[in-house]
């Protein structure tokens, strides 16, 4: 993930240095002053992301039991060991494929901000729905920690999760927590620290069961993209976007300028107001 997204990449040393990385984050409006690592917090709506955020940072962002409560991005910090971390709470999303502004913000942050670790908070009691997002995050980044939250609620509902098996299947650390009661937060910190410092290397599971024609199409385009830009870390993701007809990615490829994607596009898309109404009484 430290390789650059550019056809003429900066020297490897440059791309992996903290300043280069910090510049990317600054473009996305994150103040990285004094932080050694940046952690993104993603997850479905209403899985206790804000609670995990509060538990990690000691802040008291208001929490509530309804989906979509967090409408603004929150940032906080914590220290673990001798490292300082900056943590960004992304809006809750069900997926990274769809096209709402929230999902773009979350996706672009993981893609272009290139956080050192992405923590995906999942609801242990509705795991299959939540793993969907985890698998999509895997398409973009390797450095993922899954926070299996609401373990208390799952237990209350008579649901048991085999954490070790899940971790083995996913190929990334899985930490069970009950953030409301502060349980498991220390383990989560430790896991984040290990992934951030490289002590743990993630080998996330890739989706391999696409229908044959889809698989063939993805393979063909990925192959060509990789041939064109051998140093692109997530060629497969670019291929998926091209097959989905993402004009912005196509245009960047055409310009030979994939690195230029590393601008806060969600913000740009949000500020580019399309006149949605016929009558001139739009806000």
């Amino acid at each position: 993930m430290t390789a650059a997204l550019s056809p003429t990449p900066p020297a490897e040393a440059c791309a992996s240095c903290a300043i280069y990385h910090a510049a990317n984050l600054r473009k996305l409006g994150v103040d990285v002053e004094g932080a050694d690592f940046v952690v993104a917090l993603a997850g479905n709506p209403n899985v206790g992301k804000s609670t995990v955020f509060n538990a990690l940072t000691g802040l008291r962002q208001h929490t509530g039991n309804w989906p979509g409560k967090t409408v603004t991005r929150a940032e906080g910090g914590f220290a673990y060991g001798d490292r300082r971390y900056k943590i960004v709470d992304l809006p809750g999303t069900y997926s990274l494929l769809a096209t709402s502004v929230d999902e773009q913000v979350a996706r672009d942050f993981i893609l272009f901000g290139r956080p050192d670790v992405t923590v995906v908070v999942v609801d242990a009691s509705t795991l299959e729905r939540n793993l969907n997002l985890v698998l999509q995050v895997f398409e973009i980044t390797d450095r993922v920690v899954v926070c299996l939250n609401l373990m208390d609620e799952a237990r209350r509902r008579g649901i048991e999760v085999d954490v070790r098996r899940l971790a083995r299947d996913l190929g990334v650390p899985v930490v069970p927590t009950a953030a409301r009661y502060g349980r498991g937060i220390q383990d989560l910190l430790a896991a984040v620290h290990e992934v951030a410092t490289g002590a743990t290397v993630c080998r996330p599971r890739r989706i391999e069961r696409e229908p044959p024609e889809l698989k063939a199409a993805i393979a063909a385009v990925t192959e060509q993209v990789r041939a064109l830009h051998p140093d692109l870390p997530n060629a497969r993701w670019v291929a998926l976007r091209l097959l989905d007809g993402d004009e912005r990615i196509a245009e960047a490829l055409r310009r030979g300028d994939l690195a230029d994607l590393a601008r806060p596009t969600a913000a740009a898309a949000a500020t580019h107001e399309i006149p949605l109404r016929e009558e001139p009484n739009r806000p």
């Binding site: 096209t99 007809g245 993402d246 399309i274």
Partner: peptide
Amino acid sequence: RAEHRLSPDDVAALTERLGN
């Protein structure tokens, strides 16, 4: 009516919003 009002930039943004 809209076709005369939308600039190429608008159309590009619209395509993206609609999921191509």
